[in-house]
Design a protein around this nucleic acid. Structure first.
Lengths: 119, 119
DNA sequence: CGGTATCCCCCAAGATACTG
DNA sequence: CAGTATCTTGGGGGATACCG
């Protein structure tokens, strides 16, 4: 299995990374981002649906992480209505979709760890 | 692209995770772990070689992250010699090797981001 | 050579209350 | 319904000096 990352300094949105692996991890790192992306992988979801999918994340954190995912172009946010109760839907962008192969690899690996340790 | 994670509470080494994606990210999350694993993917490396590969990480952090990777069974540490100067080699374990497909996916994705933004 | 020890700072993330 | 506002805390990570 041979593969290489771009192993020079990379600049992106004003940040410097030692390599492209580092850059990628800055976008999807943190405790919750991949979990959010996982729950958006097959369909758009409302905010309240994400909360049900992830009962252990706080509102504040979910909100902040969604904002960062938007800022990085991974997720889009669409508002329906203007007076409360409004409806907000989150959806993977095309760029977010490009992450799906990575997410699948992470998911497979995580499943394998859990099942092997359950032996 | 259809795939599912084990979406129940998972327990691992005394920690509780909401799903297996979360579990996987706890092992490889953080600023440096994937970068370290990247530099170990093809061959074992000495501590000093890793330092050269990653000039922007501090000694303390490199040391701490290597310890966590060992604790999680991703990396093995072998010491040669007993009196300074000693030689220490770090190497992916079999479990660490199982992470390579994920690392490859992350690498490809990171490269793609960097090249597309460089347009 | 391959690390620790020490000190410090920032901020990710939790808890809880409140709002347009 | 879909979030902010506030406050708090743990610990990840940096800088630097030192050690077996």
């Amino acid at each position: 299995m041979k593969f290489e990352c771009q192993n020079d300094l990379v600049e992106m949105s004003g940040k410097l990374y030692p390599c492209t692996v580092s850059l990628a991890m800055d976008i999807i790192g943190g405790k919750w981002k991949t979990v959010i992306l996982y729950h958006l992988k097959d369909s758009k979801k409302r905010y309240s649906e994400l909360r049900k999918d992830m009962p252990t994340v706080t509102e504040r954190t979910l909100s902040l992480q969604l904002k960062e995912l938007q800022k990085d172009g991974m997720v889009s946010r669409t508002v329906y209505g203007v007076k409360p109760p409004i409806r907000v839907e989150y959806c993977l962008t095309d760029f977010g979709q490009s992450f799906l192969p990575v997410l699948q690899a992470i998911t497979n690996w995580g499943n394998r760890i859990a099942s092997e340790s359950a032996t």
